[in-house]
Amino acid sequence: MICLDNVNKDYLTRVGPTRILRDVHLTVRPGERVGILGRNGAGKSTLIRLVSGAELPTSGVIERSMSVSWPLAFGGAFQGSLTGLDNLRVICRIYGVDATERIGFVEEFSELGIYLREEVKTYSSGMRARLAFAISMVIDFDCFLIDEIVAVGDARFHAKCNHELFVKRGDRAMIIVSHNAAYIREHCSRAAVLVDGQLHHAGSLDEAFAFYDRTTAIAA
């Protein structure tokens, strides 16, 4: 289970601390798929980084009693001067798993061929995204955090990612943040809406979408 209790997050700006998230409560049980809808700048990525543990809350408590992934499909987590393979090895060492038996999977899934042994800085953005997704499937987690994953590669690769994540890992918990209501509807059983740093819980998916539509309409 993941439990956020009264979580606040400030970022320092030139005009002093600015509250990005306020009084956030969230509980995610094993196997649950929770969508978090929000417009740009609502605090979605901040929320996912707090849940992942990469950043710490200014106040409040975050408890994790299941293993939680890093924010997935994030393409920038690579050392450009290292090869794709060396980047895989670094991640495997950090998580204490053996890299050699996973090279085959990454090779096949990322479709990078000989480029897996070239420096990542020579990759196109599509190649980076493919490598990022393949590597994030290498470590096993109870809960996956997914931050706007939609933009990975072409349609065929996209379908392959969806199969790997939502079918093969269908029994895992997931938190998906997106501004795309259709994406959330397709993959989540429950949704909440983030508006100006406050997380609004809804009784059902439809209620959440209705609420999200209202908030975007007001803004427009």
């Binding site: 994790r64 009693s65 299941m66 293993s67 998580y95 798993v97 096993d140």
Partner: peptide
């Protein structure tokens, strides 16, 4: 307390 490959459950 489930601990998977990354062994991150607070121990």
């Amino acid at each position: 307390m489930p601990v998977s490959a990354d062994g991150t459950a607070n121990g």
